[in-house]
């Protein structure tokens, strides 16, 4: 084979394009991080392109983690993410197990039902009325239960279960292994990477959930979740409800605060759990794409 040229114009142009593209992702996020970790005096005049903190200071994070609305919101987000993901996994794995039994009589009608449920979205108000009717308005359970199963992830889970070698399953049936045992001691361990994949996906969706929390958790300001408060603060620019809690704060701290940097710190609190999960998402789900290997 002919040796490839070590340098070519097309490779160079593509590299430049990709570098610019990735910088549009790296710089804005790093800039927010840099502002949030700087002292308010320095962050106020900080360039929008700077990615290193100036006068490192945890001032903004001290406000976030002692804030009377943000702290309960962070706790609520964690509760909804943990309990919600647990319920997601419980339902999705059992449903995927049942739907992958080869001889299941009602398999086809059930799959058709689930796919229709996936394609047709009844809309916000009809669901809102159901939540009202069953008395879950204002409860975390409304947010947790309203997205208990995602059909798309259910289908991904089914693919992983289908890949479990039938010979092992048959051997266990001969040994008298029932459905429950078969799921917990054969399918779940053998489809570990599948379970890990959908756990990541569900956890990310749970953590990022804001819309249902916006409409269902409206009773008290301490009922809400981080994304909703973040939206109020950063998107709607409602600094009053965030910093208006002056009685609870040290007056000097409020006067010192740089709103942009404080917003940055709140955004970072919402991003960091995602950054922690991200390597695992890549490890389990995108590994084929990353390895440049074979599809499916």
């Amino acid at each position: 084979m002919v040796m490839k040229k070590r340098f070519s114009i097309s490779q160079f142009i593509m590299a430049i394009m990709m570098i610019i593209l990735t910088l549009t992702m790296i710089i804005p996020i790093m800039n927010i991080a840099a502002k949030s970790f700087s002292s308010p005096e320095s962050s106020r005049s900080m360039s929008g392109l700077r990615i290193i903190p100036k006068d490192f200071d945890l001032f903004n994070y001290k406000i976030v983690f002692s804030h009377p609305i943000l702290v309960p919101a962070i706790i609520n987000s964690v509760i909804i993410t943990v309990v919600g993901t647990f319920i997601n996994i419980l339902l999705t794995t059992t449903a995927a197990y049942v739907l992958t039994r080869p001889k299941l009589t009602l398999k086809r009608p059930l799959m058709v039902f689930f796919i229709i449920m996936m394609l047709f979205d009844p809309g916000t108000v009809p669901e809102y009325l159901v939540v009202q009717k069953i008395g879950l308005m204002g409860s975390k359970w409304a947010v947790i239960l309203a997205t208990a199963v995602n059909v798309y992830y259910l289908i991904i889970m089914m693919r992983y279960f289908e890949a479990v070698p039938q010979s092992i399953v048959e051997a266990s049936v001969i040994d008298g292994c029932g459905n429950m045992r078969s799921l917990t001691s054969i399918y779940l361990p053998l489809a570990k990477s599948g379970v890990a994949t959908i756990t990541m996906f569900y956890a990310v969706v749970r953590w990022n959930e804001y819309f249902r929390a916006t409409i269902y958790l409206t009773r008290k300001s301490t009922d809400s979740v981080l994304q909703v408060i973040l939206r109020q603060f950063v998107v709607l620019g409602d600094t009053v409800s965030i910093l208006g809690q002056q009685a609870l704060f040290d007056y000097n701290a409020i006067a010192r605060a740089d709103y942009a940097a404080l917003k940055g710190a709140t955004i970072m609190v919402a991003i960091i759990p995602i950054l922690i999960l991200y390597p695992f998402v890549l490890k389990f789900y995108a590994k084929d794409a990353l390895a440049g290997g074979i599809k499916e």
Binding site: V204, Y210, L230, V235, K263
Partner: peptide, 13 residues
């Protein structure tokens, strides 16, 4: 993997 709220925050900044 970032929420739309976070993306909006990043873009607004």
């Amino acid at each position: 993997f970032l929420s739309w709220v976070v993306i909006a925050g990043i873009w607004i900044n």
